[in-house]
Design a protein around this nucleic acid. Sequence first.
DNA 1: CCCAAAATGTTCTAACCGGTACAATTCGTC
DNA 2: GACGAATTGTACCGGTTAGAACATTTTGGG
Lengths: 220, 220
Amino acid sequence: MATTTNSERRGWTQNPDAVKRDILTVALSEFAANGLSGTRVDTIASRTRTSKRMIYYYFGDKLGLYTRALEAAYLKVREGEASLDLDHLQPKEALARLVAFTFDHHRKNPDFIRMVMIENIHNAEHLAASQVIRDLNVAAIEKLARICQGGQDQGVFREGLDPVAIHWQISAASFFNVSNRPTFSSIFGNELFEEEAQRRIRQQTVDSILAMVAKPEATG
Amino acid sequence: MATTTNSERRGWTQNPDAVKRDILTVALSEFAANGLSGTRVDTIASRTRTSKRMIYYYFGDKLGLYTRALEAAYLKVREGEASLDLDHLQPKEALARLVAFTFDHHRKNPDFIRMVMIENIHNAEHLAASQVIRDLNVAAIEKLARICQGGQDQGVFREGLDPVAIHWQISAASFFNVSNRPTFSSIFGNELFEEEAQRRIRQQTVDSILAMVAKPEATG
DNA sequence: CCCAAAATGTTCTAACCGGTACAATTCGTC
DNA sequence: GACGAATTGTACCGGTTAGAACATTTTGGG
């Protein structure tokens, strides 16, 4: 071994944050792809610039890493949602935009969808432990609640709307569209998931939600 | 039960069909509960009246058993659907019944839902291999297609309806309602999943579908 | 009654996999 | 520049798990 100047060293460079981020990124992708029990810690480690040792050093155990990856998925997706500003729009337009955005956003974040699917398989027991995630989702509902309130104040939405129920409807369509694509297209073909059909479905979803919140007598 | 002449025997009674059924029932419940990689063959065996040996004897390997369990889940659920007779009803009433039935039926078959979720996590690669399942689902669509055709013939449904797209809408609501209950209720509470709220959601789903297929000008 | 094939019991194993022990290096700080 | 704490490298282990080997019993047919 030659005398080391700079580039060739016997040691290494410490960089805790980068290491954590590296691990978390790989972990998210692996867990999303293979599920909790389907994922191998060794596989995560090998895709990392660091080693298995560091996974256990920073995240304790496999479950700890999974939980943090789940949080990371939520954080990333909610971050994207924050970019949507609806406050200057009229209620109907705001709601339409929100629905269309959610539909598209879910499509663009399949890893997030898969993590939620996996959590549901596990009865949401790890999500339940995360206060971070609860806060993020409550924030999402508040945006919807403001729109509903605005629409009711202006008399264009019917009374007694339940923001959570509306969120349920929006999520059902947007989520299912991504989560069940494999089985659905395997059985019925891929047509429904090509661009034009997806636009139609999205529009249909928007229309359904708008019809749901509209005042019974007001058609316009 | 087979006739047992002697209760104390050195040997045993052969019963291939019962053994297969026993294994398959337990396997379905285990796979639905724990996923493909989360399920232990030994656990299945222990819940069975037979042994691990027989699992491999009849089903080859873990994947073979899983695939058969998946088929069994589809068969069971489609069997339940067959009990629904809509041919004597008017199109709108028939469609309303079909939607409400699907909604309830999914709720009553969480194991089936979970198997489909698991399949989707695995990108439907095992389902793709099963011709049985494809046939079953195509049959389900035909029922819906008949209703659509009837409604169009009578002029109460609009033209150009796509039965697969309608099936998508029905499934999205009915499926999501079961599949995402854990995460959803963990975040927003359990209210939406109590009986009365569920009735409301079901009605809302029925109404949405009916509105979707209705002729634009015809309100009645 | 006998025999081959089907069905079942019992025992074992090789690979895998989450996690750890132990050692070495780096870094902040005094 | 030394020292303790934080970080990283390397090698290993013990339990688990899918599956196989080998032995035995049952069953149906001639």
